[in-house]
Design a protein around this nucleic acid. Structure first.
Lengths: 337, 337
DNA sequence: TTGTACGCGTTATCAG
DNA sequence: CTGATAACGCGTACAA
């Protein structure tokens, strides 16, 4: 076992007490500037590094925050995490990343694990299976702050960092209407997610604004994966022959739909225009390139990190609902000059 | 501050000493089975959880391992991490994920950070900028084991978990030859990466095996991103008109090349066949779908995790070079019936 | 088989 | 301003 320099070593060398050293290192007021300088200098000379385990034990803080995301196979959450790490790096906090894999059960296990690790706070995007409301509340009661990101629980009183899904969905559909589409279908997302409802509502309200009749059979569940979008498009085309646009819950569903349309010889965007959501890598690779709503992911991460840090030391709730600006990126899948 | 049950509480309640409780919990031999049962039961009843910080301090182990990867924007490393977490979850280890962002400097900072966090070991994929050989050695000397994954340093004596890049590259090019291609170009990767050399060598040796003449001007550096592949294809087509296949360092470069070829009206695979490497999401989204070498990513992760755990408690080197089987997935970008 | 006592490295509380 | 001293929660020689 290698020996690390401790405050004891410094104290011994300088003939002072450990508390003096501790005070000097903590840069507190009740210390002689000269002694402080001396301590700091010898600390540097002896290559002193505070032992984080001891600090933790003593301060009851791990300087670790946990994050539970549904997956990081797609670049969505990794990009969010980049933002989080930007902020945490500056404060020396560690980040423990867990995947719920869209399973409520796994999410619970992860929460327990993080609590056992004594993380100081948790950032969370709920699963598509549903919300572990009890557990979220439990954590907060046991004074482990939570911040929701991208996908939030509305039944729990904790900060949320999101975009305005309703507004962007509305904008996406409005774009389709303004470019001449009149028979717009919607591939909807997982029912238990709030954002699914928001996006569907945005779709419906955009139709309403322009006096287009609401036809519930134009809304087909497709979920968030390619296969779901493919199936949904298949269902749609078989029942409705006059569709001229599809607004999908996300890019994967949109790309799945595109795949089906191509297979049956429908041309995009001439016959049917397509719009996705939450701009993925694939949006720029697929042909034609996909119109989609780009979310400010790193900014979301940064914001969430800032909030959780505030929560950790103030124990006061700062902004409860942070809403960031997203952006509709129009590409050839919906509009070609 | 909430109070957690400690061994003291249990000891007091049972009228025994803390060491007895500790022994019982540790399931050691020098304890009366009856007392042990009693302790275990009351521990459960009192909802006792060992305080990880105290355990750390006392055992000088954080039960945390760190991983430094170039990026997790693409699904490559996240998938590797899935495998790592599979293994670590069972042993209750935590994983600290850091990104070097392909920068040697950032890698160094990350290593320092992880060392300050007192991680028990580090899994590492080196950056495309180069190798921090000194620092790797330093860590090992200070008895922090390292395992390289996917991208390794050959100048450091530490386990490596990889695929056989040479062999798979050879196989990829052989596939092109066997399907009738005779003028095969290569878009090569970052020069400072060993795997770049391996893949280029595989390319050259496959040509040699079939008596195709080696033409160095058919090898163009393209790096690992789409733009690089685009540029490389442009360069290639401008100098050589008779190319009938391109083998790219990875999928991004391959897709970049495809983009250029399409723009100038070259048809894939009829005129030019394309093969990528390290199968990305996009391989299945791009049109035509991309032939690529799929790596056993989660398995790589699992293997690396197992090795680092062994290293941590045995301090003995297990397998030094783990080589996993990869697979060439043939798709329409290189071969159409 | 059990208990005592100390160490782990730091912070915090009191005296002085 | 500084120094003892006691936590923090657990592990572990050593003694009993």
């Amino acid at each position: 076992m290698r020996h690390f320099t401790t405050i004891k070593d410094i104290a011994k060398k300088l003939g002072v007490s450990t508390s003096t050293v501790s005070r000097a290192l903590a840069d507190r007021w009740d210390i002689n500037p000269k002694t402080r300088e001396l301590v700091l200098e010898t600390a540097r000379a002896m290559n002193y590094k505070p032992n984080p385990m001891a600090v933790m034990l003593s301060k009851h803080q791990t300087k670790t925050i946990g994050i539970i995301i549904p997956e990081f196979y797609n670049s969505f959450f990794p990009t969010v995490i980049e933002g989080i790490q930007d902020v945490l790096q500056k404060t020396g906090h560690k980040l423990l990343i867990m995947q719920s894999k869209e399973s409520m059960e796994t999410e619970r296990v992860n929460m327990e694990f993080l609590e056992n690790c004594m993380v100081d706070g948790i950032i969370l995007a709920i699963t598509q299976e549903g919300e572990n409301v009890e557990q979220y509340r439990g954590l907060i009661e046991r004074s482990i702050p939570i911040v929701f990101i991208s996908r939030a629980s509305m039944q729990v009183n904790a900060p949320r960092v999101m975009i305005d899904n309703y507004k962007m969905s509305f904008a996406a559909v409005e774009h389709l209407i303004l470019t001449g589409r009149r028979h717009i279908a919607h591939i909807s997302g997982p029912v238990s997610l709030n954002i699914t409802g928001d996006r569907t509502k945005g779709y419906l309200d955009a139709l309403a604004k322009y006096g287009l009749e609401e036809d519930r059979s134009l809304i087909v569940p497709g979920g968030m994966v390619l296969e779901g979008g493919y199936e949904a498009a298949c269902t749609l085309l078989k029942s409705k022959r006059n569709i001229d646009a599809i607004f999908a819950f996300n890019d994967h569903a949109a790309i799945g739909a595109m795949r089906y349309l191509k297979e049956v010889g429908v041309s995009i965007p001439e016959d049917i225009a397509i719009v996705g959501f939450s701009e993925s890598h694939s949006a720029l690779v697929v042909e034609p390139r996909l119109t989609s709503v780009a979310q400010p992911l790193t900014e979301m991460g940064r914001k969430a990190a800032e909030i959780i840090l505030k929560l950790i030391d103030n124990k006061k709730f700062p902004e409860m609902n942070v809403c960031l600006e997203a952006q509709l990126n129009i590409r050839e899948s919906s509009f070609k000059i």
